[in-house]
């Protein structure tokens, strides 16, 4: 447990000292979402209808952006090998990396999403569901994303490969995240979607660090 907090703190410190890297994900998130009204037209009737889905799709892509570097820097300078030899298990390392990734990307997306909801004219009843689905969904993205980042460690064209591996696995989160927002706009009860998103999060929390550790072991050996 101490190892876990130390690792998370190390990652956060690296992210803060790295400067603008963490902000790039959010900037991409907002910018990409702004592109859609140019594509489909600024019709005030269409935008709220597609807004929830677009915000979620763009969030998936923004989460992908920073995943590629999750283990790469440690792999290149050899600290991954040292962490492998340290008493901290690979599963804990994977969990720490995912937590740090969520704190430096998911949380920022969470903060930025209400702004996008304003731009898309979402009714105010959809704001809380949007933030709630993002809070439950983005940690799952980080946890599952860690598996992909570990698998593509040292691969040629890692970035595109990462998108190919992860986007199909992200579909369930997208379906229930966007579905909850649609449901809230239509005035339906969205508790089922939130519970399923929570279920995904718990399953990912239990299984993903384990799979990431298996993938890391293949990369290090």
């Amino acid at each position: 447990m101490i190892g876990l907090t130390l690792l998370v703190r190390r990652e956060l410190r690296l992210a803060f000292r790295g400067g603008t890297d963490a902000m790039m994900g959010v900037i991409f998130f907002v910018l990409a979402a702004i592109l859609f009204p140019f594509g489909v037209g600024p019709d005030a009737a269409i935008l709220p209808r597609i807004g929830g889905g677009i915000i979620w799709v763009v969030a998936l892509l923004a989460a992908l952006l920073s995943l590629e570097r999750m283990f790469a820097a440690d792999h290149e300078d050899g600290s991954l090998d040292l962490l492998y030899l340290s008493p901290v298990s690979l599963g804990q390392l994977a969990l720490a990396k995912a937590i740090a990734h969520w704190l430096t990307s998911g949380v920022l997306l969470l903060i930025a999403s209400p702004v996008l909801a304003l731009l898309y004219n979402l009714p105010s009843s959809a704001f809380l569901p949007l933030v709630a689905t993002m809070a439950l969904g983005t940690p799952t993205l980080s946890l599952v994303g860690a598996i992909g980042a570990a698998l593509t460690l040292g691969a040629r064209r890692g970035g595109v490969l990462l998108a190919l591996l992860l986007l199909p696995l992200y579909i369930p989160v997208l379906i229930f995240g966007a579905g909850a927002i649609d449901g809230a706009i239509a005035g339906r009860d969205i508790a089922p979607q939130l519970m399923i998103l929570g279920g995904f999060l718990l399953a990912a929390l239990a299984l993903a660090p384990w799979a990431t550790a298996a993938a890391l072991r293949q990369a290090i050996e």
Binding site: I147, L151, T152, G154, A155, R156, R157, G158, L161, L164, L165, P168, A211, A214, A215, Q218, A219
Partner: peptide, 21 residues
């Protein structure tokens, strides 16, 4: 994704193991 990952590494062993995971 499975096929791409198998062939993404210079070391075929590594590709096979990653694809297995």
């Amino acid at each position: 994704g499975h096929i791409a990952l198998t062939h993404a590494f210079d070391n075929p062993q590594r590709g096979a193991k990653a694809a297995a995971v």
